[in-house]
Design a protein around this nucleic acid. Structure first.
Length: 506
RNA sequence: GCGCCCAUCGUCCAGAGGCCUAGGACGCCAGCCUUUCAAGCUGGUAACACGGGUUCGAAUCCCGUUGGGCGUACCA
């Protein structure tokens, strides 16, 4: 049964934005495939026509590509076991449903939605466990034939034995048992002709030679139904592993309302694919040596699925930001700059209302076509901000001083040094202006000049730099002052100092 | 309600009977460094849910309780 080469898959539904949980499950699946020298495939489970979202599939491809979670087979990359879209495989499911019908492992159910609802209401009222009552299972062949001839809509349900139990072995939890009487006669083929997950999943995994099902924990309760289907078809069961569910802070299954779940959000927020992936791996997994920062390749090289923990991890955005910051600090200046440029170019292509005040995006809007100038500013500022940002998006806050076209605005009070009067601060700025004007415009020279000034006037360096910082950057928090002045250049720096002096003279 | 899964610091993990006076990381607090903010470095805060067993010995094994989660759809 245990195939030497694992064939695994992820099977997301195209019902909205690509979900962080999809990436999470994809990550572990891919690790298993890579480690075992096997194959990893992507199958689109688009059998729910009411929730189908045409734009979703492409976004799933894009998000997985962004993360580097590439697959060996899939709708967009092809493969020998296609098509990889379930809506294109409906003939197969119908055929397989017929097979089950012929084997006496399934039956047609003509119950209407109304009857089912009534049944559920009754069961609820009588505090009975919900579930199909098997009405159509007891139909005589003649009755069934008659209904069919009348063209009454029907679904195909699987026949679950009333006695005994069905169990399976989960890699992380051992044997899991279910009494058959607690398992419902699951619908396999819907009245619209599309299969339910249960049928399609089993049929496709078998057809696509999947040997190992690694999916989220929410599927555990459905697994005995799948086991029963494999048996009804006479097929070998795959190996089963159920991964823990990512959680909100309140421990409930991660959801849009309580936590960002869209992979697109994480990308637009400026998380690096390496950082997100690394963080996801930390949710339930750890390397034996305890190292927390590692690459996908590191993970794949040593991955051991038995090390995955089974408790549902709370998704902690703060730790993600820290880890992403670690990744950013580990980037070369060139790489960081390239990513910052790409990030802002993409952001600019799809602006949001809040972006109207974004320092970087508004600069780009004011300077159309100034790609080279933009890239230059970003490249030169990258080393100054590298230790100060945890996401690419945070660049805009700390680097705003490089993107003012005119003069920066700020409260004049910010120009006043600690324990000094506005007049004293103005005089200090006048002196600073003179030294700066005379200095070579390089950070070390500028710093030396102003430190000398502080020394001569009896100011503490830090106190003297405060008004200068506000004047030059327009903010109390900024990249290192002298490097910033050098980057801004003599003209801009002097203009800003003059503006500050004027503000304090008013 | 019923079924199934789970249970170590606020959070993420380590711990596979003695190495645990329970270790690391994020966060938080304090100090150092320091031109702001960061980064970096030091130190601190903080947990084995509870009760029974088993054992010479249990965070680690078993049972129960409690708590949380998931499932209970012609959704996946």
């Amino acid at each position: 049964m245990a195939s030497p080469v694992p064939v695994v898959r992820i099977a997301p539904s195209p019902t909205g934005d690509p979900h962080v949980g999809t990436a999470y499950v994809a990550l572990f699946n891919r690790c298993v495939a890579r480690r075992g020298g096997g194959r990893f495939l992507l199958r689109i489970e688009d059998t729910d026509r009411t929730r189908y979202d045409a734009s979703s599939e492409g976004k799933i491809f894009e998000a997985l590509r962004w993360l580097g979670l590439t697959y060996d087979e899939g709708p967009d990359v092809g493969g020998p076991n296609g098509p990889y879209r379930q809506s294109e495989r409906t003939a197969l499911y119908r055929e397989m449903a017929e097979t089950l019908l012929a084997k006496g492992a399934a039956y047609r159910c003509f119950c209407t939605e109304a009857r089912l609802e009534e049944l559920r209401a009754t069961q609820r009222a009588m505090k009975l466990p919900p579930g199909y009552d098997g009405y159509c299972r007891r139909l005589t062949p003649d009755e069934a034939r008659k209904h069919l001839a009348e063209g009454r809509p029907y679904v195909v349900r699987m026949i679950v034995p009333k006695e005994g139990e069905t169990s399976f072995t989960d890699d992380l939890r051992g044997v899991v048992r279910f009494e058959n009487r607690t398992i419902d006669d699951q619908v396999l083929l819907k009245s619209d002709g599309f299969p339910t997950y249960h049928l399609a999943n089993v049929v496709d995994d078998h057809a696509m030679e999947v040997t190992w099902v690694i999916r989220a924990e929410e599927w555990i309760t459905s697994t005995p139904k799948h086991v029963l289907l494999y048996r009804a078809f006479g097929w070998d069961e795959p190996r089963w592993t159920h991964l823990p569910l990512l959680r909100n802070a309140d421990k409930s299954k991660i959801s849009k309302r309580k936590n960002p779940t869209s992979l697109i959000w994480y990308r637009d927020q400026g998380f690096l694919p390496e950082g997100l992936l690394n963080f996801l791996a930390l949710m339930g997994y750890s390397l034996p040596d305890g190292r927390e920062k590692f690459t996908l390749a590191d993970l794949e090289a040593t991955f051991d699925i038995t090390r995955v923990s089974v408790t549902g991890p709370v998704f902690d955005l703060e730790k993600l930001k820290w880890l992403n910051g670690e990744w950013i600090r580990g980037l070369s200046d060139d790489d960081l700059a390239a990513r910052l440029v790409a990030h802002h170019v993409r952001r600019a292509a799809a602006p949001t209302p809040e972006d109207a005040t974004h320092p970087v995006l508004t600069w780009m809007a004011r300077h159309p076509g100034a790609d080279a100038a933009f890239a230059s500013i970003v490249r030169r500022s990258a080393p100054l901000v590298k230790e100060r940002i945890r996401t690419l998006e945070e660049y805009g806050e700390i680097a705003a001083c490089f993107f003012h076209d005119g003069l920066p605005t700020y409260p004049a009070a910010d120009l006043v040094a600690k324990k000094r009067t506005p007049a004293e601060s103005r005089d200090a700025l006048v002196a600073v202006r003179a030294r700066v004007a005379a200095a070579e415009f390089r950070a070390p020279a500028l710093e030396a000049a102003l430190r000398a000034l502080a020394d001569e006037t009896g100011w503490k360096p830090g106190d003297l730099f405060t008004p200068v910082r506000t004047a030059v950057t327009g903010a109390k928090i900024s990249p290192p002052l002298f490097e910033t002045m050098e980057l801004l250049g003599r003209d801009t720096t002097l203009a800003r100092l003059d503006h500050a002096i004027a503000a304090l003279s008013a």
